[in-house]
Design a protein around this nucleic acid. Structure first.
Lengths: 132, 132
DNA sequence: AGTTGACCTGGAGTGCACTCCAGCTTCTAC
DNA sequence: GTAGAAGCTGGAGTGCACTCCAGGTCAACT
């Protein structure tokens, strides 16, 4: 099964331009081409894209994704380094989640404040209505 | 109590250049100046900076932070809109955390795979040693 | 009085990750 | 056999959030 670039874009959630861009910067291998010279993405290509988007979503810089992609081509010998990259990245992601949760508390606190303000303002309005 | 820009940078975790940049784009009010024309940040300034960094950490675009900053100057009347911004942003943050957690599972899965590969490689090495 | 170091301004430069464009080819449907 | 959609290439442009720089001022210490 192969997929035209529009379909690959749709499946991966990336834009067509981004797919070609990723190819240019060697994040992905040049996919096969059909008889007319158009890109024909394989299921494997999509699986790799899918994994890449996971790394992107979690904020891995493209530079590091490229290193990972390069290592992949060098086979099993690089498994340790690849694992190391992922383990380090996992730590980054966990830290990031913790950061977000801390910020969330601040956000909650602020929102609660605004709710109190709204109640106060409504109280004044109610009072004004009652005494009008 | 006031703070020189270097101290404010240190306290907020932003760079001196970023503080001046935030001032230029009207994210923060111009702080007071000392007799020599140097910025003298107040505790309130620092508190606001601190909140801004929370918004930044959670990925709020500067454009939106500016809107929020602007509303703040217009007093209580804008409380509802400000709350709305924070509530919407909180949703973004929650979504983002959920995304990260999904990606984390993929990362964990991959890492587990690499660990299996390492064990397999170690097994072969052990076998080779034993039969050498 | 001179040196050092922090700070000042306006403006230019940077890095990242796309995103868009012009001009061309190729397939599909009528 | 022609119109329109989809894809191609190389290269330029964009938006964001800083970051750096030159050339100057000011205060404190020696």
């Amino acid at each position: 099964m192969t997929y035209a670039i529009a379909e690959a874009a749709h499946q991966s959630g990336l834009s067509i331009d981004t797919l070609r861009y990723y190819e240019r910067i060697e994040l992905i291998d040049p996919p096969a081409r059909d008889s007319g010279g158009r890109r024909a993405y394989s299921d494997d290509d999509l699986a790799w894209l899918n994994f890449l988007t996971k790394l992107r979503t979690t904020g891995m810089p493209i530079r590091l994704m490229r290193e990972y992609a390069k290592l992949r081509h060098q086979g099993l010998a690089t498994a340790t380094r690849r694992k190391q990259i992922l383990v380090e990245h996992r730590k980054d992601v966990l830290d990031r989640i913790a950061d977000l949760q801390t910020c969330l508390e601040v956000l909650n606190y602020k929102i609660t404040n605004y709710e109190q303000i709204e109640r106060d303002l409504a109280g004044v309005a109610g009072y004004e209505e009652a005494t009008a």
